[in-house]
């Protein structure tokens, strides 16, 4: 191909972007392992292997350069996001099926890298939680520490996990609040389970750290995480003020579930979210609103996946209506003469 100007290029590639995203996930993973044992590492390995194998297979079927696209790292990012959003002690096939859906259906059936209208990891999560709601809501109990061997047995089906799993803080709350006893409040639940949420806030901290790294690397801009977290905080703050018995406080809302993972790694997926500055704000605020609504009024404990997918649908439209003014078209620029 004739190579025209510019002849200079900045040393950056899709691969380096993706690998830095993977790198940014590591603090969160360290905290995850610290509090919930090495099970998540097995899930990460399973998801990565499945994702790369599926990617290579589909690329071969689509007659695309296999190595170039497998090595871009995008499948790895999807795999890791799936592993981190799925329950760590879920059976092996749960994450394998989820990853296959993400790579084959959500990514390649739509045209592969850069073409997917929906966030692949969130498609996987949404599909699996609809199909296997029970398996998808069993999370390890913080109090129990699980070693590598136990984790293997649980994941590969040698033993059952009922004894050592419990719901996530969000799930516990929603089960309690939506239970038969109308007098239950957040306070009574928290009184019963004082360590609720412990560990999750450290993991959230790890994600925050990774997110700040991505901001510093200019891989993501401030718009998406800020608007997402602000809208969540605002909704939580107002609702908590109005009805503290049934609505979580700001801190709980932001630190529980995958809020921070979503804020820095899922909402910020460039392919399926908005690209204009104003569009990003609207998109992320919309995800925040939907998440909060689903958490409190919907049928699932955490609504991030559905919220992201819903806003993915709207992203092109938002982009279209939020095109920034081009050079010289800002309203304060009027010619002195005509």
């Amino acid at each position: 191909m004739a190579h025209n100007s510019p002849y200079l290029t900045k040393a950056s590639s899709v691969q380096s972007v993706m690998l830095r995203v993977v790198l940014a996930l590591i603090p969160g993973i360290v905290a995850y392992v610290w509090f919930f044992g090495p099970a998540v590492l097995i899930q990460l390995g399973l998801a990565s292997f499945t994702a790369i194998a599926a990617e290579a297979l589909v690329l071969k079927l689509r007659k695309r350069p296999i190595w170039r696209f497998v090595s871009d790292g995008s499948a790895l990012v999807t795999a890791w996001l799936i592993a981190l959003s799925f329950p760590p002690l879920g059976p092996w096939w749960l994450i394998v099926v989820g990853t296959l859906v993400a790579i084959i259906v959500a990514k390649h059936l739509y045209g592969g890298l850069g073409q997917n209208p929906f966030n692949p990891a969130m498609v996987a999560f949404a599909l699996m939680i609809v199909a296997y709601p029970l398996l998808m809501s069993r999370w390890p109990n913080v109090a129990t520490s699980i070693n590598f061997q136990q984790a293997c047995e649980l994941i590969f089906g040698a033993s059952t996990m009922d004894a050592i799993t419990s719901a996530t803080p969000l799930d516990t709350l929603r089960t309690a609040l939506h239970g038969a006893d109308a007098s239950t409040t957040i306070q009574t639940v928290l009184a019963k389970t004082p360590r609720l949420g412990h560990g999750w806030d450290w993991i959230a901290g790890g994600y925050l750290l990774g997110g700040l790294y991505l901001l510093q690397q200019r891989i993501i801009t401030w718009h998406l995480p800020t608007a997402f977290l602000l809208s969540m905080a605002l909704l939580a703050g107002v609702s908590n003020q109005l009805d503290p018995a049934h609505f979580n406080g700001v801190a709980f809302e932001l630190l529980s579930g995958g809020t921070l993972l979503a804020a820095f790694f899922i909402v910020t997926d460039p392919v399926s979210s908005c690209t204009t500055p104003r569009g990003k704000l609207i998109f992320a605020a919309g995800v925040g609103l939907m998440t909060w609504v689903i958490r409190h009024f919907g049928g699932y404990p955490d609504g991030i996946a559905f919220a992201v997918l819903l806003m993915n649908v709207a992203a092109p439209l938002i982009d279209m209506y939020t095109q920034p003014p081009v050079f010289g078209q800002k309203s304060d620029m009027k010619p002195k003469h005509d």
């Binding site: 191909m1 004739a2 007659k63």
Partner: peptide
């Protein structure tokens, strides 16, 4: 100016 050639399709399989 000519349409830039999209070099995506020829499958350069390096494996």
């Amino acid at each position: 100016w000519k349409y830039p050639v999209v070099t995506l399709h020829p499958a350069a399989n390096l494996q």
